[in-house]
């Protein structure tokens, strides 16, 4: 339902605006978590964080996926639909790769006998797990969105000229990327 009256002063598409508010909301959750982290860290019994190498690799992966997102958006606008589809697919796959690398990273930690949860675990690593998992969940949502868009774009019967969906998806993806950059820098500095 295009429920927008024509005469609206069109500053920003309502769906894009909604996404920005949602981003604010998601940020508040991570703000709550990182604040809790800071408070906890200032108390006794804090084990210094070790960031697994896989996390740094995953950072490169997610940066690359932001690039492919941008390329997908550009291709859509230039009506290069094959490239658009390819970029959508690659972004989704890079997203999955990111998640796999996260799992690899956490597994590496447990192999070093660092407990993330349960008896003998320290809050620092528990926070790392909790926060990274929540980020991963939000990233997974983005992956699903890109996957759905990819499948849709293969349907030759329907032509869509509306750039809003890919723009909204890209903005969300860039947000998830930037959020990760913030988080990994935060964890490295606030070990």
């Amino acid at each position: 339902m295009q429920a927008v009256s024509e005469q609206q002063r069109k500053k920003i598409h309502p769906h894009k605006f909604t996404l920005w508010v949602a981003i604010g909301s998601i940020l508040m959750m991570f703000a709550g978590l990182t604040s809790a982290y800071i408070v906890k860290r200032a108390q006794a019994n804090w084990a210094l964080l070790e960031i697994p190498k896989a996390f740094w690799i995953s950072t490169v992966v997610i940066l690359a996926s932001s690039l492919t997102t941008y390329l997908a958006q550009k291709a859509f606008k230039e009506r290069q639909m094959l490239k658009y589809r390819q970029m959508l697919g690659i972004t989704a796959l890079l997203g999955l790769a990111f998640l796999i690398l996260q799992i690899v990273g956490f597994t590496a930690l447990t192999k070093q006998d660092i407990k993330l949860v349960g008896a003998g675990s320290n809050a620092s690593f528990s926070f790392l797990l909790a926060i990274a998992s929540l980020h991963g969940a939000h990233l997974l949502g983005g992956v699903i969105a890109f996957f759905v868009m990819y499948v849709r774009s293969r349907n030759a019967k329907i032509r869509s000229y509306n750039p809003v969906p890919i723009e909204v998806a890209s903005t969300y993806w860039h947000f998830v990327d930037l959020l990760w950059i913030y988080l990994i820098l935060f964890f490295s500095v606030m070990k």
Partner: peptide
């Protein structure tokens, strides 16, 4: 709501961790 409910969610998630994964938040 948009700015405050997420913080409850973060508190609730940490509680779920403490309850089920043996963490010590």
């Amino acid at each position: 709501g948009v700015l405050s409910f997420p913080v409850l969610l973060s508190g609730a998630i940490l509680l779920l961790f403490d309850r089920n994964l043996g963490t010590s938040f």
